[in-house]
């Protein structure tokens, strides 16, 4: 399948050595994108209250965490034990596994910027894209969203509220991109040449350690374009050839190694490949 090329390629470089795992990005993401807090009972749906409980947030396979922070460790015993945190947004793959499988074109990679779109009103909820995505970046609305009474007054204007039964995922806070373009037009800036920092997703803005750098990977003036080429940079599961637009970087070799699978034998070469195998 051919990879569609875009003039602009929005991407992230996440410096794992700077992520302390605090969770601010995850919270900002939920607030920005109208992800309802997880409540177990719907006081307005008596039948549901009588028959079933909604999910507990500790069931991580039922949460809606567009941006999920994984905890990695080097597997060594005390005191050599080391821990790292890896925030995982949608990778916005250049060659996405999820897009070609969707039977109804609810997800697509077609717009300038290379963000993989997910259109909730089109989605029929077959979950084939979730089966396809090896990053588990896609989430299903198992229940209708539910805010404690009154809290829906704080809905963000930036993301439509999804009903149950559709798939959703990180879209680099896409509405912010659309707004940035509008602001650029108003200010007389070419929307195709947004300056760095003109458009940033909520997680990037919230991160207190600046671990996430965001920009146009195709624009050499943007920091991400340089960082992506760092010898410490790698992409998750690079070997699968999905060509993600999210890069990671770490000076710790064990972290880089955990970025991809290495069958016995190709261990070292693979890490090297991972850190150099992108242009």
């Amino acid at each position: 399948m051919q990879v569609k090329e875009f003039k602009i390629k929005w991407g992230m470089v996440i410096d794992i050595d700077k992520c302390s795992g605090c969770g601010a990005c995850m919270v900002s993401c939920q607030v920005e994108n109208n992800i309802a807090p997880m409540t177990q009972e719907d006081p307005h749906n008596h039948l549901q209250m009588m028959t079933t409980k909604r999910d507990d947030p500790s069931n991580k396979l039922r949460t809606l965490t567009w941006l999920n922070v994984y905890e990695l460790n080097n597997g060594k015993a005390f005191p050599e034990h080391d821990v790292a945190y890896l925030p995982r947004p949608c990778m916005q793959c250049g060659h996405p596994a999820c897009v070609p499988v969707c039977p109804v074109v609810a997800t697509d990679k077609n717009e300038e910027g290379g963000i993989v779109s997910q259109i909730y009103p089109r989605c029929i909820g077959c979950r084939y894209c979730m089966a396809a995505c090896p990053y588990h970046a896609r989430y299903f609305n198992w229940w209708d969203p539910l805010w404690p009474d009154g809290m829906d007054k704080t809905l963000s204007p930036n993301a439509s509220v999804r009903p149950r039964g559709v798939v959703e995922k990180c879209n680099f806070c896409h509405t912010r991109y659309m707004k940035a373009k509008d602001r650029a037009r108003e200010e007389g800036i070419d929307p195709m040449e947004l300056p760095e920092g003109y458009y940033v997703p909520a997680c990037v803005e919230a991160c207190p350690t600046g671990a996430i750098v965001f920009g146009d990977l195709n624009n050499p003036e943007h920091k991400v374009a340089q960082l992506a080429k760092s010898p410490h940079s790698f992409r998750l599961l690079e070997k699968l050839g999905l060509d993600p637009q999210v890069y990671y970087m770490s000076k710790r070799e064990w972290v880089r190694e955990q970025g991809d699978n290495h069958a016995a034998g190709d261990h070292n070469s693979a890490v090297k490949q991972a850190s150099q195998g992108h242009e």
């Binding site: 697509d108 077609n110 717009e111 300038e112 963000i115 779109s117 009103p121 896409h174 659309m178």
Partner: peptide
Amino acid sequence: QSNACYVCHK
């Protein structure tokens, strides 16, 4: 003009 989904949807 582009008719990509994310040109109009959010």
